[in-house]
């Protein structure tokens, strides 16, 4: 959150005739809405229960109420999380939606895009890393992640990633680690891959604002 940007707009909006009431959908930003956002930049915070507790409670309900694939995502860097329901598929890609209309798109459990989080991951090239992770093979591959910059232009974050297998479990999922490094960026992802080569649980880096996404597939 760039508070500088918000403050100037608040001042401008308050001072220059954008406040008030209107029925025009193109004139909805009022001093009030901008003001609210200055006071409450990240949206509502969880109160009585932690976001982790809330997500697991909601996941139980979701599993009962839908036949669609269900999972959970936590964003520890932002103290929030949500239940994911797979709302659409497109070839190997699945788009998983949350109750507040954010979404995460994954290919075999590897995140390729996010929407509605702010500073979203717009698209990714993960062919190389995904095939190593799914096959639980060690090796190095390229990863490309695309984001919108402050002008709304796409820029690419290119990294080289080393995949390593953390011991081979005889039972249960295998832990696979992906260490990526590029210009000005380095991050690490971890995956639990089942015998069928599916990622069932993971901790995947998105970017500085959103941190790691902890994704768990429940059904």
């Amino acid at each position: 959150m760039n508070v500088r940007a918000l403050l100037i707009t608040g001042a401008v909006t308050a001072g220059l005739a954008l406040a008030g009431c209107t029925n025009n959908p193109s004139r909805k930003a009022t001093a009030l809405t901008v003001g609210k956002q200055i006071l409450q930049p990240g949206g509502k915070k969880d109160t009585s229960e932690t976001y982790v507790q809330r997500v697991s409670r909601e996941a139980a309900t979701a599993l009962e109420n839908t036949d669609l694939p269900v999972g959970t995502v936590l964003l520890p860097a932002r103290d929030t999380g949500a239940v994911l329901v797979r709302i659409e598929t497109n070839g190997p890609y699945g788009t998983w939606g949350t109750g507040d209309r954010s979404s995460i798109t994954m290919r075999d459990g590897m995140i390729t895009a996010t929407r509605g989080l702010g500073d979203d991951l717009m698209s990714s090239d993960i062919d190389g890393v995904l095939s190593l992770v799914a096959q639980k093979s060690e090796g190095t591959a390229e990863r490309v992640q695309r984001f919108l910059d402050g002008e709304n232009k796409i820029y690419e974050v290119r990294t080289r990633c080393r995949i390593s297998v953390q011991g081979s479990a005889t039972r249960g999922p295998t832990m696979v680690r992906e260490a990526c490094r590029g210009d000005d960026v380095a991050f690490e992802n971890r995956y639990a891959v089942n015998t069928a080569g599916q990622i069932v649980e993971s901790k995947q880096w998105i970017n500085a604002r959103n941190g790691h996404a902890v994704v768990k597939r429940l059904r």
Binding site: M1, N2, V3, R4, A5, L6, I8, T9, P41, I87, E88, T89, N90, G91, T95, G97, D100, R101, S102, S103, T105, R115, G116, G118, D119, D120, M122, F147, L148, D149, G150, E151, N152, R209
Partner: peptide, 21 residues
Amino acid sequence: MNTKEPSVRGGYERAPLPVAV
């Protein structure tokens, strides 16, 4: 302030509907 640094890059708006194949 910086004209190239908005309050949040890419905006806060809700997710779009996905393409239906």
